[in-house]
Nucleic acid binder design. Structure first.
Lengths: 220, 220
DNA sequence: TTCCAATTGTACTAGATAGTCCAATTGGTC
DNA sequence: GACCAATTGGACTATCTAGTACAATTGGAA
């Protein structure tokens, strides 16, 4: 048997590459996000992430230190995004009832449209929020969400439209729960009830139900 | 320096052990459950489980085949338990309103009292319900929960107490969401709002809120 | 041009991890 | 008591995995 002649060894070694730190970072983050979302923190493999990147594993460690640093960066980015989303809402311009309905609808949609975010939060909760605690970038935010609800609730209460004695946090938890659960538990719901919550009709029906439920919760 | 004289090597080798297959199984399952709940499927370590058992790693593989088999057994046991819980409810004996309130309260309590179950379901959902699908023991159950709700809802609807056009599954999802979320997302809620949902007062307040919300959802 | 700090590629390693091999012990059945 | 199948122990291994060593390349400042 004749062995094939050796290929011109590593000629492209000298083919030049251009520096693009930000591009590299973004690329790694996007791939890492997908991996962590799919496999969790312990399930994700650094080698796998590196392979799906257009860069080498070396870059991950150069930019993010270690696996946990990379995970933290992914988490921070995800929270930064939802913060942007929250700021885009202007509930003060709406009458109380419409404000609550809008907030609920938007929250529901954000979760349904960003299952990656939901799964990342699940993963982080499995780890007892250890990395949320570590990250200085995340700790301060999100009280604005409660403040927004408090403002709307006060208006509705004074109007005599909403009932007395509700806690803004309780309202927030209800809205979140009704938005989060169908996404986080999509798989078990499908297995146990044969229901696909991701299907457009099921999703739309559930969305209407969530809004209706929250309105009934806050109104007299 | 004088070395200590060798200990009577492995004298207890002949110390007899008694066979107790069921005990061994239960012991392993309990430890494994704790490990999977704490670290997820990929995060759990077979060696760690073995170490916390009063048996050797060999036993795990003897009784459960491999790590996934062990995980599946844990999952099956958890679902068997909640099925037992569901069967213990007798809603048919209660008037519709009380039946819904009771079901919601019980469901809320079950989740709050069994965070292990909640976390196991989270882990399984991260894995897209792959093992729920594999397990023949689990696939058939749980439709009873929906049937129970349907029966109660029909009674209430005919009475003119509940509003028309509700889907029993939708009611179930709402009850589950309101029971599941505060447990599953306990860590992130604490990090972001400084609220400890496990605290007795917070839990009790949330419980009342959940019942009230579900009642307002189904009643006219 | 020269030189240095910021990037990047390649090859490698120490340790962790799931799973196995083989022999030994036990309990029950004949 | 003998024998066999069900259990159990303990050491071992192949592979995976996070992380590193070290050299090379690039871009920009002097």
């Amino acid at each position: 048997m004749v062995t094939a002649p050796p290929l011109p060894a590593k000629r492209r070694k000298s083919a030049s590459w251009t520096q693009d730190p930000e591009g590299v970072r973004r690329d790694i983050l996007a791939v890492a996000r997908a991996e962590f979302v799919e496999n969790g923190l312990s399930g994700a493999r650094v080698d796998e992430i590196a392979a799906k990147t257009s860069n080498s594993k070396r870059m991950i460690y150069y930019y993010f230190g270690d696996k946990e640093g990379l995970y933290r960066a992914v988490l921070e980015e995800a929270y930064a995004r939802i913060r942007t989303f929250e700021r885009s809402l202007d509930l003060a311009a709406l009458p109380p009832r419409e404000a609550i309905a809008t907030l609920t609808g938007f929250t529901f949609d954000y979760h349904a449209d960003n299952p990656d975010f939901v799964r990342l939060v699940m993963v982080e909760n499995i780890h007892h929020g250890r990395h949320l605690a570590t990250s200085t970038k995340i700790s301060v935010l999100n009280l604005s969400a409660i403040d927004m609800i408090r403002e709307v609730y006060e208006r509705g209460r004074v109007d005599g439209l909403f009932r007395e004695g509700l806690d803004p946090i309780d309202i927030h938890l209800t809205i979140s729960a009704l938005s989060f659960y169908n996404v986080s538990n999509q798989a078990s719901i499908r297995q146990v009830f044969g229901h696909d919550m991701a299907a457009p009709e099921a999703r739309e029906r559930r969305r209407r139900s969530a809004i209706e439920t929250v309105l009934r919760m806050v109104c007299r």
